[in-house]
Design a protein around this nucleic acid. Structure first.
Lengths: 195, 195
DNA sequence: TGACGATCTTAACTTGGGTTAAGAATATAG
DNA sequence: CTATATTCTTAACCCAAGTTAAGATCGTCA
């Protein structure tokens, strides 16, 4: 399967993009590879591209001014969209850094091209709506994790629901994503040995 | 100013809905009043209406199965949209209760009518997109409050940014919204007397 | 293989929220 | 204006996470 075919398949699964609609977009997608540590989008930059991850893992993180600590906000992996959503849709500077945590490959499209596609096909309009809903769900899930679950529960659910992330990311990044310090995560893991 | 004029003005402010576009929608808006404690939408119900608050305050809350406690998720007040967004856009059962905390008055529109308006005017399509972005921002802000701020900081920011809510809601509901117990909020308030 | 850097765990101590129950302050109704 | 219910605060004790620093483990590469 070529990369384009993978993308076509994924877009079809995600938003019912059919062959014709995909054709419209084909000239606009570009390919890019990232080394570990390279940025997809940086703090204060306007996010101009929406990416589709062929391979690799990305993280977006916030730098707390008080503590100067990095706080992981989202992870994105294979076959997912990576984008700084708010910055992208409002074309305003981003509050976050989004970085590749591994060697990665993505296909990406410029917001102007995407906007053009919205006008040319209802399939793409639906795609836009579904990206919006996905972004909402990501944010809402994150809020719910923190509002309703303990750090221990968040840890267990991460293992359950995102083993791909858990298995490819150092524990101190997991701890940051869970909203705790590395020693706390160690204690949680120790506590759970018996269970 | 009539209630319809208030709505027209608010929709124009929010999404640039002009007189013509508003005309299209006029037959669909209905008015409803709520007593304190009445539900806008209940757990397991599909949210079929999008409401605009003329007066009053609503809360949406989650009931934690383990502790059987209510956890406040969002507050909505005057001139804001009230809707169980995810349930509304996917027409699936809601995980939350949304309740009026005061005597309230809203204007509301059925999802079918709204969908019809999307097809009839770009103004309304934009409205739909902006509601989506508003929902995303609400959820993302909530996630950020919990990921990046301490309970004390959340309390201070609530007072700063939402005095209307702070002044109209009992402290034990504020505590729940901040993700802490009432005694903790008391301690935070006491701690701050000196500052 | 051995040495270095990165990652993970542990220990000791501090801090702040949870829990429970009692009591104070505030509203509300009769 | 009192009685009553609601809301808010306080106290005492517990526990989990934060903090800091040390040391163990793991990986990698010369």
């Amino acid at each position: 399967m070529t990369e384009t075919q993978i993308l076509n398949y994924a877009l079809n699964q995600f938003a019912g993009i059919d062959a014709d609609a995909f054709e419209l977009s084909a000239p606009y997608w570009q390919r890019k590879t990232y080394k570990k540590g390279e940025f997809y989008n940086e703090y204060k930059n306007v996010c101009k591209y929406l990416g589709f991850i062929l391979d690799g893992v990305f993280r977006t993180y916030y730098i707390d001014e008080e503590s100067a600590e990095e706080k992981n906000v989202f992870f994105y992996s294979k076959n997912q969209v990576v984008v700084a959503y708010k910055s992208f849709v409002t074309q305003t500077p981003c509050s976050y850094y989004t970085e590749s945590m591994t060697e990665s490959t993505i296909l990406y499209i410029h917001i102007n091209h995407l906007t053009e596609l919205y006008g040319r096909s209802h399939h793409w309009e639906r795609f836009g709506r579904l990206v919006a809903e996905t972004a909402f769900n990501l944010a809402m899930n994150r809020a719910e994790e923190f509002m309703f679950r303990s750090p221990e529960q968040r840890y267990l659910e991460l293992i359950q629901n995102h083993p791909d992330i858990f298995n490819n990311v150092p524990l101190y990044h997991i701890a940051s994503y869970l909203g705790i310090q590395a020693p706390s995560l160690s204690r949680i893991r120790k506590r759970m040995v018996g269970k």
